[in-house]
């Protein structure tokens, strides 16, 4: 496992090429092309803002106004996370030809899924920046230094889960279907459409067990809330945990590797 793990950097050229291919291929044939990377989160933001400001006005405290911006800070990384997992869970099966017929490092495929979605996430950042300027939110440059840290933590966490799901889906095809529902539940258990303070006291510990909670709060602290990043301890703990998740994911993937060519 260590040996294979150390071989990973060797494939960066391959990974890079495949990520670019993924981005190119995804919107090929659509009118808006890669603008969909911007439009998708914007539309999602529009939907939730409509619900929580027009249909249910006053549902949220003053601290999360403007609501659209608050939501956008959470939904952007969440989309990266959930799309990565959805794609990673299917990637070995859809890339079956590569696994079965070509000598190919299989772990590259889920990693490419995560990275391709990271690219969409990064493409969404200019919109976030535009919103921040529009609402004239003050940003602390020092606090912004946390942003890449959060990104790295989320990357390892997502990749670990992605590898695990990719490997298990080969044996249990219905993970794909379960995953959709699990992700919906997970979305609502993460303070994205609501701030953490709105969660009932008695349930906060549940939310605290959710790794995505700390990532979402960190993003919100850095990008939305004024004042120092008060969540950094949680984030660092989460960072350690995500490394463990990554290693576990890689370990399981590596153990099941030999079965892929036969089971896909």
């Amino acid at each position: 496992m260590i040996h294979n793990l150390l071989a990973l950097p060797k494939y960066r050229g391959l990974i890079q090429t495949l990520v670019v291919r993924d981005l190119k291929a995804r919107y090929r044939g659509s009118v808006l092309g890669f603008f969909w990377s911007f439009v998708n989160p914007l539309l999602l933001m529009a939907v939730y803002t409509f619900v929580f400001t027009v249909i249910m006005p006053g549902a949220h405290p003053e601290s999360v106004q403007p609501y659209g911006l608050f939501f956008f800070c959470g939904i952007l990384p969440w989309t990266w996370f959930s799309s990565s997992l959805t794609e990673a869970s299917n990637v070995l099966i859809s890339g079956g030809n590569l696994i079965k017929k070509v000598l190919f490092p299989a772990e590259v495929l889920p990693i490419v899924s995560v990275l391709a979605n990271l690219s969409h996430f990064l493409l969404g950042l200019p919109i976030l920046a535009a919103l921040l300027i529009y609402y004239q939110r003050p940003l602390d440059p020092l606090e912004l230094l946390w942003f890449p840290v959060i990104l790295v933590v989320q990357f390892f966490f997502t990749t670990g889960l992605g590898l695990l799901l990719a490997a298990l889906t080969v044996h249990f095809r219905d993970i794909k279907d379960i995953l959709g529902n699990v992700l919906t539940l997970w979305f609502f258990s993460t303070p994205i459409i609501y701030p953490m303070q709105m969660a009932p006291e008695g349930y906060r510990w549940v939310l605290n067990l959710n790794p995505m909670t700390h990532l979402a709060i960190s993003y919100q602290e850095v990008l939305f809330h004024v004042g120092p990043h008060g969540h950094w301890k949680w984030l660092l703990a989460m960072g350690a945990a995500s490394l463990v998740v990554f290693l576990i994911g890689y370990f399981v993937f590596d153990r099941l590797r030999d079965s892929f060519a036969e089971e896909v």
């Binding site: 291919r21 190119k24 291929a25 090929r28 044939g29 030809n97 590569l98 079965k100 017929k101 070509v102 000598l103 190919f104």
Partner: peptide, 18 residues
């Protein structure tokens, strides 16, 4: 180099060059 499945990694949407 294995000529087992030709063009196994081709992506249909993008050009032959790529």
């Amino acid at each position: 180099s294995a000529l087992i499945e030709l063009g196994a990694g081709f992506h249909p949407e993008i050009s032959g060059r790529e």
